[in-house]
Every structure is written in C-alpha cells, then in structure tokens.
Design a protein around this nucleic acid. Structure first.
Lengths: 102, 102
DNA sequence: GTCGACCGCAACTCTGTGGTTGCACTTTGG
DNA sequence: CCAAAGTGCAACCACAGAGTTGCGGTCGAC
C-alpha cells in the first residue's frame, strides 16, 4: 500500500491546522476562512486534498458544507505504521541475537 | 507536539523507497544510489531529512556510513496518530449520543 | 605514497503547489 | 423576489524542494 500521498496531505501546516479544527467541531469552508489567516479559496483547496486522502467528509446543512475529520482513517494509518515499525525493529533484534551467538 | 515536519519527511515516494530498503538491511548512500534510479547526492539529501526527522541512524563502517531505519520512531508516531484519531471519533459518538437523547 | 571509493558542499534547473484575486453560479432568508 | 451568503472554477504569482552536475576532501586498500 502506498502511504506517501496520505502523508503529503498531512505534511502541510495549514492543512494540519484545518484538520485539528475539524476534529474539534464541524465547520464550513467559509467558517474556517473566518478564523484562519488565509483566503477561503486556499481553504477550499486544502479541503479537497484532505477529502481526496479520505481524511475528512462533508454534509450539506442548508446552503453550506460542514466538514468533519474522520478519526478512523488516522487510526488505520497508525495501524500500518506500527506494523511496519515493528517489522524493522524485529529484524534488528533478530540480527543482534545472531551476533551475540558468536 | 509538531507532527508536520515528520509527515513531510514521509511524504516523498523516493524517501519511502529508501526507508523500506533500510528497513530490510543497512546500506550506505552509495549502495542505495547503485540500486536506485537517482544520483548519490539526491539520496544523500533524502538521508539528511530522514535523519533530521529521527527516522534513520548511521554507523561508520570503514570509510562508509551504514544507515538503518528506526522502527521505534514510526511506532511512536503511530501511537500519536491513533490517539488523535480516537479523540476525534470519541467526540463524534458523544455528539451522536446527545442527538439520540432528544 | 598513490589511486580509488565514499562522502560533503555549492550552484543551478525545473516542476509542484500553496496562496492570491476575480468572476460566475446556486441557494437561502427576509 | 432580491440581496447576501456560500461555493466552485480559472488564471496567475512565488516559493519550496527534488533532482542534477561539478568539485574538493578524507580515508582505506594495495
């Protein structure tokens, strides 16, 4: 599985800011733009890439789109990372065990 | 804690390629350049940013630097992400519970 | 001691993308 | 019904960074 695209979505400071705000409460693009120092269009682009990475979802409420963060996606990513990390360390300890047997 | 720098270290495809190779066995910059389609200097830059993010370490062996991936760092990151993801989802289920009480 | 392998630094190119402004479209609220 | 709020699309600018080439330095092998 290819993790780089998801990390690239998470790598931007502004995008992470947006994500944490959406983790705390649902917000529209305009509402986010009101409380952040960038234009609404910049926010909209970030929301698109975040949605593309499966990290947020939107619901229509009246004429606005309320976005919310999807924690399950983050947890799934965390699972993959943990698995990979353990693999690497397992290899190291295996090597070390062989070395000590000499 | 500021996660964006680590994310941006993980956001590049080539860097993941390097990381997974180092997860399988220790390699020098030149050795990596031999088996990858980019120059040694490009590899060296990636190794610097990966080391800066605490994802790899190097040992001197003769005149070469052998790099290895640090799985513990990945697992630590995984922990943080999982915690955050669960927080977000916990908030959602809390809201949903309140909504259903009406 | 010398040659070759490995590393590091510096300058340069070029693509990707985060940000902006401007305009047009839809929809709600009064 | 009309104004304003909310969104979307397009063109443009500016900077970051991934990649290259070139050179110099250091250390091991012979």
């Amino acid at each position: 599985m290819n993790l780089a695209p998801v990390f690239s979505a998470l790598a931007d400071e502004t995008r992470w800011d947006i994500l944490t705000r959406l983790g705390a409460r649902e917000l529209s693009a305009s509402a986010l733009a009101d409380e952040m120092p960038v234009s609404r269009q910049a926010i909209a682009k970030h929301l698109h890439s975040l949605a593309g990475a499966g990290l947020i979802e939107a619901d229509r409420v009246g004429r606005e789109l309320r976005y919310r963060a999807l924690g399950a996606q983050l947890s799934a990513l965390a699972n993959d990372l943990d698995r990979i990390g353990r693999e690497w360390d397992a290899r190291l300890t295996r090597i070390k065990a062989i070395a000590e047997r000499l």
